[in-house]
């Protein structure tokens, strides 16, 4: 298993690590049993993601995919962010080893979970906007 230089860069120097006080939406996915948990914080203003931070417990790919996902949605509208797929995260990182694809799924889910939380806080039904958010990575047998 070999990581691309981009993955290693995002692992060694992760972007947007941390928390946002008074975040407008927080999403957490994954579990300790499987070995990865991602938590994403969003600051949303006028439908735009003004700031995003993350915390991740997991492998190098888990850290790198969370970091890349935050970069890809920062400054974007919620609608644009919701179009982000795990494939886009993988491409932006110049690929991931097959065993690590689930990390990118988790990054997409973390972002969606945070947006869903934003809608919930607004008193809206998140499913109408985000669809169903899985809090566990579907690719991971351990969660089933």
């Amino acid at each position: 298993m070999i990581y691309s230089e981009k993955v290693m860069d995002h692992f060694a120097n992760p972007r947007n690590v941390g928390e946002i006080e008074n975040a407008d939406g927080i999403g957490e996915v994954g579990n300790a049993k499987c070995g990865d948990i991602m938590k994403m914080y969003l600051k949303i203003n006028g439908g735009i993601i003004e700031d995003v931070k993350f915390k991740t417990f997991g492998c190098g790919a888990a850290v790198a995919t969370s970091s890349m996902a935050t970069e890809l949605i920062k400054g974007k509208s919620i609608e644009e962010a919701l179009k982000l797929t795990n494939k886009a995260v993988i491409e932006a990182l110049d690929g991931l080893p097959p065993a690590k694809i689930h990390c990118s799924v988790l990054a997409e889910e973390a972002m969606k979970a945070a947006i869903a939380d934003y809608y919930t806080r607004q008193g809206l039904d998140p499913e109408l906007y985000v669809g169903k958010v899985s809090h566990n990575c579907d690719a991971c047998e351990g969660c089933k």
């Binding site: 948990i37 915390k55 991740t56 417990f57």
Partner: peptide
């Protein structure tokens, strides 16, 4: 640990 939600 500083970036781990599990540790938190």
């Amino acid at each position: 640990r500083s970036m781990s939600p599990l540790w938190e």
